[in-house]
């Protein structure tokens, strides 16, 4: 894969992530059925639910991993692409990219949580958890940001811009 392809793929995946970010957060990711109530939960709703049920640490992790991290990744990647070819802040960009790659897979924690819940939380009339369409969008969002960061390689940071290389 050439460097330009890498850049292009990463860029397009970033754009996809931006697009997907809206449905992923607006559409419910799961439906929880408890005696007396049926609730459709979005990602943020899930965090709220966890927080309300007293699981503050878990809520914090899920909030970080599911909402903050994708958002940060989108911003960070945007910054990387915006500064592509520039020779400024190269060390900082390296650090940011390394961090992005490292935390990338953590964003899947919400999907992981959901799949466990959906598998375990089948208690008939007592309780039930069902994944909803939102989870697919969310999943796609995470994958987009993940691969976007993954395809973008560190040496691209050190590449001179096309204009300057000539």
């Amino acid at each position: 894969m050439t460097d330009s392809t890498r850049l292009a793929v990463s860029r397009s995946l970033l754009v996809s992530a931006v697009i997907l970010y809206i449905p992923a957060n607006a559409i419910p990711v799961m439906t929880i059925t408890l005696p007396g109530q049926v609730e459709n939960l979005t990602v943020l709703g899930g965090v709220e639910e966890l927080y309300n049920s007293g699981l503050v640490p878990v809520a914090g992790i899920v909030f970080l991993a599911s909402i903050l991290v994708p958002l940060m990744k989108i911003f960070a990647l945007s910054w990387l692409h915006a500064t592509q070819g520039s020779d400024k802040h190269r060390h900082a960009r390296m650090a940011v990219h390394g961090f992005l790659v490292k935390i990338g897979s953590w964003a899947m924690i919400d999907i992981f949580l959901l799949s466990v819940l959906a598998a375990v939380g089948q208690l008939g009339v007592l309780a039930g958890v069902e994944p909803r369409e939102g989870s697919i969008f969310f999943c796609a969002l995470i994958l987009s940001t993940y691969f976007s960061a993954e395809v973008y390689k560190p040496w691209l940071i050190w590449q001179e811009s096309h204009a300057k290389a000539r």
Binding site: A8, V9, R11, S12, V15, I19, P23, I27, E133
Partner: peptide, 22 residues
């Protein structure tokens, strides 16, 4: 000029899916 135009299929797909859903 831009051999990597195909990569824009990802955003297109995302936009189409979201649009269709909404």
């Amino acid at each position: 000029k831009n051999p990597t135009l195909w990569v824009w299929i990802f955003p297109l797909l995302a936009a189409a899916a979201a649009g269709w859903f909404f």
